[in-house]
């Protein structure tokens, strides 16, 4: 259970986020949507304590995150940044091993247990053949998959993804979202992901949060959030909302009024 109370915050001295109050149940798959600059990344980073809130509190299972040590927090909540920063030629396996950092001893030497955990994840993510490949040789989709594998290796209950499907083709997008769905349904992880594609957000997420100008405009099921009034206001674009005949979920198409 993740609870955010009266949260204000942002990157510098000015608050982007204003009076955020959310509670997300354990085992939810929550999609965060909103315009560029609405504060999606800022909110996700504040939840992970990468940004310090100027006011307000965040609770995980009733514990205030500000009172947790960095290591303890890293065992509860994992964060996947929007892009993998360009880095040295680590192999995929080495890269995944870094996620075991919170569990390593004082000299941070990976143990046999860490090694086994990584092998399991390589299996689960179907990445066995990539284990000794350099992370810089991978395609965009493969990179994202490795990034997700790293998040799994951190073994936290709450997984936070900042635009996991950015810059991917629709096939790769759906593959990534399917993995998130598997993590949610089979490994019982709580997932919070910011997404730009409203339609896949509606298809995959159990609940959606629409962020507008640093405030929560709407929080609820896809049917509740994806209505044309709120979407038009939040994105300042004319849209029509229809129902997908197969899944019965809403989908959104922008329209040009001649």
């Amino acid at each position: 259970m993740l609870e955010i109370k009266n949260l204000y915050g942002g990157y510098g001295d000015t608050d982007i986020l204003k009076d955020i109050n959310i509670s997300i149940k354990k085992g939810s798959f929550c999609g965060l949507i909103g315009r560029n600059g609405a504060g999606k990344s800022a909110l996700l980073k504040t939840i992970c304590s990468l940004l310090k809130p100027s006011k307000g509190e965040i609770f995980i299972d009733g514990q205030n995150t500000a009172a947790l040590s960095k290591i303890d927090l890293a065992k509860k909540i994992a964060f996947m940044p929007q892009t993998l920063e360009p880095s040295f030629d680590f192999t995929v396996k080495e890269f995944l091993t870094f996620a075991r950092f919170p569990y390593m001893g004082i000299f941070k030497i990976p143990s046999k247990k860490d090694d086994e955990a990584i092998d399991k994840i390589l299996d689960f993510m179907d990445l066995k053949n990539f284990a000794q490949k350099s992370i810089n040789e991978l395609s965009g989709g493969e990179r994202q998959k490795v990034s997700i594998a790293q998040i799994i290796a951190q073994d936290a209950d709450i997984l936070i993804f900042d635009e996991p499907t950015a810059h991917l083709d629709i096939g790769a997008q759906y593959a990534i979202l399917q993995i998130l769905k598997d993590l949610n349904e089979n490994l019982c992880k709580t997932i919070i992901a910011s997404l730009h594609d409203l339609n896949s957000a509606g298809e995959f997420c159990k609940e959606l949060i629409l962020l507008d100008d640093g405030q929560i405009k709407k929080h609820g099921s896809a049917e509740e959030v994806l209505n044309y009034q709120d979407i038009e206001e939040a994105y300042q674009t004319r849209v029509i909302v229809k129902t997908n005949p197969i899944s019965n979920k809403p989908y959104v198409i922008p329209v040009i009024i001649p």
Binding site: K45, C48, S49, L50, S69, K70, I71, D72, L73, A74, K75, I77, A78, F79, P81, E85, S87, F88, F90, E94, F98, A99, F101, P102, M104, F107, K108, I109, P110, Q154
Partner: peptide, 23 residues
């Protein structure tokens, strides 16, 4: 040499290393 793995984590960039619990 002894803290090489900490240096590995630092080299991944500050968001990533912070979220792994490194100060």
């Amino acid at each position: 040499c002894l803290i090489a793995n900490i240096i590995n984590v630092i080299s991944m960039g500050s968001d990533k290393s912070k979220s792994l619990g490194l100060n």
